[in-house]
Design a binder for these strands. Structure first.
Lengths: 224, 224
DNA sequence: CAGTTTCATGACAGTTGTGTGACAAAACCC
DNA sequence: GGGTTTTGTCACACAACTGTCATGAAACTG
């Protein structure tokens, strides 16, 4: 069952969307403010999020940015404004699609389906991975070395998870920038720096890494 | 550099899109028919595909379906018709987004970026190739001889992969220069040097190579 | 068998790739 | 709002790699 969270302050529109979505076979929940939406999504993550741009308090753009910080859920903007500037800004903020009200429920449903189809390839359920004395639990957000909990930052964690998900496989700096940072383009040295910092934390001897190894000219990989 | 393929039969619109995309920093190519588009994408895959729905011959829907059979590239429909039924059908066929003409180039660019951010799955894993006691796994960026890991440089690795990909067939120095170095012209001796270095690493007796053999006057080949 | 072409290899200098510490801006947390 | 953590940029140093060249060996050719 696919769960959708609708963040929209107008009660009538929110209820109409919720009803229509349930009609289409989704489980739908609503939130009237960005803050409530963020909290709900943190506590009980939905598979898709619909968000209005005009919200009281925290606006839609900010809501998207904050949610994107630690959630990769597909976000669709549903706004009354059909304005290129808004569309671009929303997508820049991290939204995946932008629909103009009033929305045809069939179209919305088809777009949600398209987003999930594309998203699925990425999301590989990884319960917990073990690399020798290194242990990574993506769900718990924890990294352990020799049973001891290691504090890593969010970026380091995402980088590590990305490498772990494709364990044994080389990932180029470009691929990592794309998948961890979402950059299309950017300074590849950024990856080096974060790999370096990660090594300080997870390798017994950071100068001679056993797990997070460099393949000169190719990229990095995580091995057992 | 991000490459975009535009499949659109109207010359004026196609050219306008191509120009606008290049202005935005993309490399853009055009195709006037679905058939030409499919061929181009097969031979020289772009990172994004834009397709019109009204095409002579094979229509856009069919074009999308066929492309989806063996390509996961993000596909965006650019159509004159703003009709829920068309939108749903296009997304069902495998498109990832649907824009109504006339499109704002900034919006198009932002949507392409959002699609790429969502990311493509890594290409399917390539199984390791085995040549007797020699083992090459492109994914892991590793070469093994008799189970033992051998350190090879990037150029050597590419050269080896290229030879492995056409195992048993002779590749001329020109072909290797072209495929490994991307040189159209250059000193063929360069290949000799790298083949020599590679032999030192992967052959039990480098003076009498068993796998990476010379075919005098023709080139080199990799055999089992 | 002498001459010619083709190939292997060692040395070397210039280039490139990577690790790292310092630093400033941004985000975060009371 | 002030202090702390995290993030991204930069510059430098060092190690690894690349391409060129010279030399000699090996394989063809007539």
């Amino acid at each position: 069952m696919t769960a959708v969270l609708v963040i929209e302050d107008d009660d009538r529109i929110r209820l109409a969307l919720l009803l229509a979505l349930e009609e289409e076979g989704y489980t739908a929940h609503g939130a009237a403010t960005a803050e409530e939406g963020l909290r709900r999504q943190r506590e009980n993550p939905a598979d898709n999020v619909l968000v209005d741009l005009m919200l009281p308090g925290l606006d839609g753009f900010e809501c998207i940015r904050q949610m994107r910080r630690d959630d990769d859920v597909p976000i669709v903007v549903v706004s009354a404004r059909d304005d290129t500037h808004d569309i671009v800004a929303a997508l820049e903020a991290g939204a995946d699609d932008y629909l103009v009200k009033p929305v045809a429920i069939k179209e919305l449903s088809a777009r949600l389906r398209a987003l999930r189809r594309r998203g699925r390839a990425l999301v590989a359920p990884v319960p917990a991975q073990v690399f020798g004395d290194l242990e990574i639990s993506p769900d718990a957000g924890e990294v352990r070395r020799a049973g001891q909990r290691v504090a890593v930052t969010r970026t380091e964690f995402r980088l590590l998870c990305e490498l772990a998900e494709h364990a044994g496989r080389v990932l180029s700096r470009q691929q990592l920038l794309q998948r961890v940072w979402g950059y299309d383009t950017g300074d590849e040295r950024l990856v080096d720096v974060h790999v370096g910092r990660l090594r300080q934390k997870i390798e017994a001897d950071p100068a001679n890494p056993r797990h997070l190894v460099t393949l000169r000219g190719l990229g990095y990989k995580l091995q057992r």
